[in-house]
Design a protein around this nucleic acid. Structure first.
Lengths: 194, 194
DNA sequence: ATCATTTCTTAATCTAGGTTAAGTATTTTC
DNA sequence: GAAAATACTTAACCTAGATTAAGAAATGAT
């Protein structure tokens, strides 16, 4: 149960004292999520955010046809949560599932609010990472409005080179917004083009 | 030049003293943007965020084919900025244009950073509104991945009832991600269905 | 190692939504 | 208030990507 990667993450934007680190540690939970198990499932009210210490989670929704849509992958050093449910305290529609056995640091909403009071610097930290996340989602929405499936796939490959070989293609398809069959067709065409 | 709506907006999440309000006011600029004029254009490095006192702005990109994609409408009481450019201080790809004559309160990035130092409560305020914005973009991305054009149009009508009659249909089309011709077809079908 | 499950590929067929084009409102501008 | 510009509609035709289906390859469980 080593939270070092989390404190490295904090250190990217703020400086914490040893005392503050100990205090924060006291508010964290550690959990191992086995492959294919869930951190949250749709319909539940989310109680916590997760920071991935190692392994990989994915957040996805299931639409009325039963099709999955991946909203985010969270490999090592990424934050993930059903922000909608966490903020509104209403049932969410996100499933957060482990793609491989995954270790996470968990912060409950209650403890996060406590942390903000006791260590106001964290308010800045989370403002900054949420800003970055917002920019990424705006960019991705824009990509979905303006790029073809092929362009989105190529962009995904550039943006997540480490994930390409580690995750099933059907998950990439569910992220860029095409069927697995069509992604397969695209890739076959690209190979020929070389 | 009346910033009252902005302080009402702050009051939704934090409480400011009169002194703090005066200090913040000293860091704001007031500007009238005439219809069809720009607050920012793609290629520029954004220097400020805007809060709409009255009127309406829209943020859109133009893709390689010359097609416009609306990322956000900002009517009265909304915040808008090219967050990517503002945070990275690199040239952005967002155009922010007034749809009608619009009055805005502007905060430069420099002054915003100053404000965070002097009035740390604002750090919380902006964390909260950015969180909400993030949830909205996640939801919208999910809608674009999982809903049909008709469903997205109906959802837009529910979400922005006040905008429906005030903005050109082609802007709604550029927001939900269809051509104006196709939106026109959808609407004709809906009218018949009644 | 073997069987079962899941993932990936290929190919034929289909469709939501795009494109092109031409005509009809509706605004804007002077 | 007439002319020009912009927005909206309709319709014929087109295409990127979906669907269906069936086989091949990879992974996992026992």
């Amino acid at each position: 149960m080593d939270f070092t990667p989390l404190f490295h993450n904090f250190a990217k934007h703020i400086t914490l004292t040893k005392t503050e680190e100990k205090y924060i540690t006291s508010l964290l939970d550690f959990k191992i999520i086995k492959a294919k198990e869930f951190l949250v499932q749709q319909g539940e009210i989310s109680k916590q955010s997760a920071f991935v210490l190692n392994g990989c989670l994915r957040g996805y929704t299931i639409d009325s046809e039963g099709t999955e849509h991946v909203l985010s992958f969270a490999p090592k050093d990424w934050w993930i949560a059903d922000m909608y449910s966490l903020l509104s305290q209403k049932p969410g529609n996100l499933n957060i599932e482990a793609m491989v056995d995954t270790e996470v640091a968990l912060i409950s909403k209650t403890n996060q609010d406590l942390m903000y009071e006791k260590v106001p610097k964290l308010e800045r930290f989370f403002r900054i990472i949420i800003e970055k996340s917002l920019v990424a989602y705006q960019q991705r929405l824009n990509d979905n409005l303006s790029l073809t499936a092929t362009e989105r796939y190529m962009k995904f490959c550039k943006t997540y080179p480490q994930l390409i070989n580690d995750i099933p293609q059907k998950q990439i398809a569910a992220y860029i917004g095409v069927t697995p069959e069509f992604l397969s067709k695209l890739r076959a065409k690209q190979v020929k083009a070389k």
